[in-house]
Design a protein around this nucleic acid. Structure first.
Lengths: 205, 205, 205, 205
DNA sequence: GATGAATGAGACTTCATTCAT
DNA sequence: CATGAATGAAGTCTCATTCAT
């Protein structure tokens, strides 16, 4: 069942799925192309996944986990809650900047995949926002910032980040996604009453 | 040429398209259902529009125009650029709060409809962000706020708003979309260095 | 009923139909295009003709009549039955050489228009072959040629001519259709036992 | 790759296509009917052929090849070029006489199927005429007949044959297609200056 | 008489899913 | 386990014909 070869196939299919879904979009991606791109046959894909929707969902799960892991790692290397939040945002930006297809998957395709995905995406978005909210809550607790509606603030930060990424996806500007953060960061900081200090250096303390 | 009945049909089809697209999503919406919902035949729809994509695009155009008109009207009733930006955001929130299907069209379906729509949507997003940017630029010119990267700030404001709306669409929270603005507004104001004064009353001066 | 304007409309539609049918073929020709090309509306076309098939059939009738008239005229200017047959063939070649669309109508489109047209086309072909047969019969009667199966001979002559025309339609060779007749004529003459004399000068005695 | 069952299906579809195309004509033939007539599903047909046009073209190719093979075999059993040409024509007549649907495919449907097919059909016609021309050229070389324009002669022979076949298709006369050849043959022979000897016995020497 | 809008049947084609080998 | 062939539902679009104005 969990033979190494089988597991590897499973992964290869998800890798191919990421390529194809992000290139074509959920609906225009065909199982045939995923099969071809993963070096398997259509039957092979259906041995590993019960249907197309599940492939997409699994891919979303795997990607979300990996991204959250990276975020957690980045957070862990800081003590200051603001620096942590900072690191979280920067991590997202860096990962998406490097893996455009991943960005497209989360920002674009996951939305248009149909009603059934909305609930799942709401969850995913909530988790990301939750990470930020946690840091902001701690910052308040520690008296670093004055009390604010952290639920809304986290959403706003997350939304601002999203829009920057989406604009980059669609218009290709700015060239390097990370550059946008230099301008965005002070805005976010001020929005919760912080004087915008120098930008954090991300995962390096 | 343009018989009054024909014009009315044209509008009825777009109205139906809004209903169907926002209920089913772009791909799962069938021209058949749009025809049925508009009280026309399939052939009738194709007499007015050359294909499904054009229906969607026309709908997007009409909706964008109408929304921008309302925003312009709201802006026109204020002098202070900050109050104007404020009014613009509030208008969006109010319109979408009232017309959930419109919100879904812009926030969700337009993204996932496929590659060909991306360029168009980038344009639409840029126009909305542009309206905000204009106000912020004036605010800086008038010395109301300190210089900031208004391009990014406008995008951030717009993105924050988007996220609030999307969360409302997916999770249904908060009950009344406008309520979210009470919490969002101070964040936005502070983000550009303004002490968050009392919320503007929208289109009323 | 037979107001001059109405008659003219009727003709204009047939003229347009010839253009469109020969350009597009029977099936790919749309009534819309015929209407447009005739300066009428679709409704107008349907006022003059009950349906598309009838338009085609009327066109075929008119074209056949006109062609046969010309052939008859050409025949009338000769006394010798062989010269008459000669003139008939040359007339067909000349008319088709000048009106490629007419050639296409008879040689190509009339065949592929569907089962219903086959009977009609068989009739038309028989009439053309009949004209030739008549001359050959007279030639035999006058002792100009030895008895042969004139039914078959007429068909063979007609078929040979058809193939030359069709090759010209499809391949564009020879440049001038009439040129092919110089080579074809001796073959036809010999086929009925005649020493191929100098080619007739067509409608001039 | 090419499982035997798949190859057989492929053939079965072409067989069905021949039946349906010749019964209905290219346009009025529906892929649905071809599928049904071949004992397959519509999807099955589209697994083997990318579209309707390709089915038709493949069918034309297969039929042309088979017919030419038979012609080549018939030719090979004679040494005298005139007997060879004779055998070629007779083969065509016999095959078509036996397979009326094949005759219809070549003589009627292939022409009316639309512009895209014209080039292809011109090719096919040229190949058939080419076979005849070859024999005539050899006959001249061997001094059996006097020099004539063999290009035109071949076309004329081919055209004469066509017309006989077409008349048989449309009018059903003569009952047995082969019978017509008895009358046609002397004409063709004489047309190239040969005294019409007794008819060849076809593929038997 | 004429126009253009509307109808609706039907065509081709796609593709997720199943299944025999 | 894997493959590729097969299925069939569903979708977009065309167009001859009809009809209200």
């Amino acid at each position: 069942m969990t033979q190494p070869r089988s597991v590897e196939r499973h992964q290869r299919i998800l890798d191919a799925a990421l390529r194809v879904f992000s290139r074509r979009g959920y609906h225009d991606a065909s199982v045939d192309e995923i099969a071809g791109s993963s070096g398997t046959s259509k039957g092979g894909v259906y041995f590993h996944f019960p249907n197309k929707e599940t492939i997409f969902l699994s891919l979303l799960d795997r990607s979300t986990s990996r991204l959250l892991e990276k975020i957690d790692a980045a957070i862990a290397s800081h003590d200051d809650p603001i620096a942590r939040a900072d690191a979280a945002l920067l991590t997202v930006l860096r990962v998406f900047g490097k893996h455009r297809s991943l960005a497209r998957l989360f920002m674009v395709e996951a939305l248009g995949a149909g009603r059934e995905f909305h609930r799942r995406m709401a969850e995913v978005r909530a988790r990301f926002a939750g990470v930020i909210k946690e840091q902001l809550d701690q910052a308040i607790e520690q008296g670093v910032i004055a009390p604010v509606d952290t639920e809304i603030a986290a959403r706003a930060w997350f939304g601002a980040l999203n829009e920057i990424i989406t604009a980059w996806l669609f218009a290709g500007r700015p060239e390097r996604l990370e550059d946008a953060y230099a301008a965005l960061r002070p805005l976010l900081m001020r929005s919760v009453g912080l004087a915008p200090a120098a930008a954090s250096s991300g995962s390096r303390p």
